[in-house]
Design a protein around this nucleic acid. Structure first.
Lengths: 191, 191
DNA sequence: GATAAAAATTACCCTATGGTAATAAATCTA
DNA sequence: TAGATTTATTACCATAGGGTAATTTTTATC
């Protein structure tokens, strides 16, 4: 839980009351590999801050293929943001890739925190803005880079994730098949 | 300018003072087809709300090919959000596709508006959240749909844009070449 | 309305990535 | 450690979409 508090303190100065409030609406939870935190179809009123471990959100297409929208490692947030922000049932599944510890927040409580503690506004805004930036960059990468280039960007962005995340999840994040990723990696190793 | 005021009023109740303040930090401007609102490399402290017309933001890759990140039509916001949120030089260009009228905001002024008028917080948040949702959906589409399917989603999402936007811009948004889009359209017309 | 310019289509061949399947390697489990 | 299971690799052929270029259609300009 300290992670988050420190992270907030990097961005705003946090009163003891505000810190207490955070503790009151948050709950630290541990999940083991394979556990589902959000199930497709469910109502989503939770969002998770990752303390350690790795998780992903993904959708399943009509042919049953999985497509990874997001990975989350330490200090990242994860949820089904489409469902959460639109107040509609989850179209995504959020699962643990490895044993993980997260802080679970009630989304409404968290969104309203600035009412009691206006100093949270810039922190929340910054979090959302950073999210937008990372999505814009991802889309630009998808538009202009080859599979190999996208893979290189990925391992730069998540330097340690490969040890923990199976290859086919990375492939499904990059928008290619597991086999193509294998080829791409072979290609890369040759050079 | 009424567009924006009405749009805000749909979401929050707006005092006369707040309305005046909006007018004071905004400037309605008209641009003609082809004009550049944000140039790659520039510092970005402006964001635009579209009154009418159509604009796009795009990047240029190492081979000189353009990739459209976003279209903006009536009631949408457009800027280089990567540059704006990260306080770095623009990596995108924002240009008018057709003659357009926009409201230009100083980004800092707009971001700080909640300090004087806290009732703006939910409006600003909602705008950001909607942005995140649309980007998540775009990424999911890119991961799981074929070019034809993405094209269909596109024309559903922007029903009238085709009359105004050249095909090669749409192609560059969908992540395919102009020629592929042409094929896709021919395919679609056949059925 | 004629001409020029821009945009869209079509054709041809090429390449990156997909699909299926077999094999190999790694990991888990008893 | 053996066997089972999961994951990764490789091979083969198939296909969606790319590249170049020629042609047609549309739009702008005089």
């Amino acid at each position: 839980m300290k992670n988050l508090i420190n992270r907030i303190k990097n961005s705003i100065s946090l009163s003891t009351e505000a810190e207490k409030y955070i503790y009151s609406i948050a709950e630290e939870k541990s999940f083991s590999k394979g556990e589902i935190l959000i199930q497709e179809g469910q109502t989503v009123n939770k969002t998770f801050f990752v303390i350690h471990g790795s998780l992903r959100s993904f959708c399943v297409d009509k042919e049953g293929k999985e497509h990874t929208l997001q990975f989350a490692i330490q200090d990242w947030w994860i949820s089904d943001f489409i469902a959460m922000y639109n107040h509609e049932p989850a179209s995504l599944t959020v699962e643990c890739i490895t044993d993980s510890t997260v802080i679970e927040f009630n989304a409404q409580m968290l969104a309203q925190i600035y009412l009691q503690f206006p100093e949270f506004e810039p922190f929340q805004r910054k979090t959302l803005e950073r999210h937008v930036v990372s999505l814009h960059k991802r889309i630009l990468n998808q538009l202009q880079l080859t599979a190999l280039e996208r893979y290189n960007v990925f391992i730069e962005q998540y330097p340690n994730i490969e040890q923990h995340v199976p290859n086919y999840h990375i492939a499904s994040y990059l928008g290619i098949t597991q086999q193509s990723l294998s080829r791409v990696r072979a290609e890369k190793a040759k050079k």
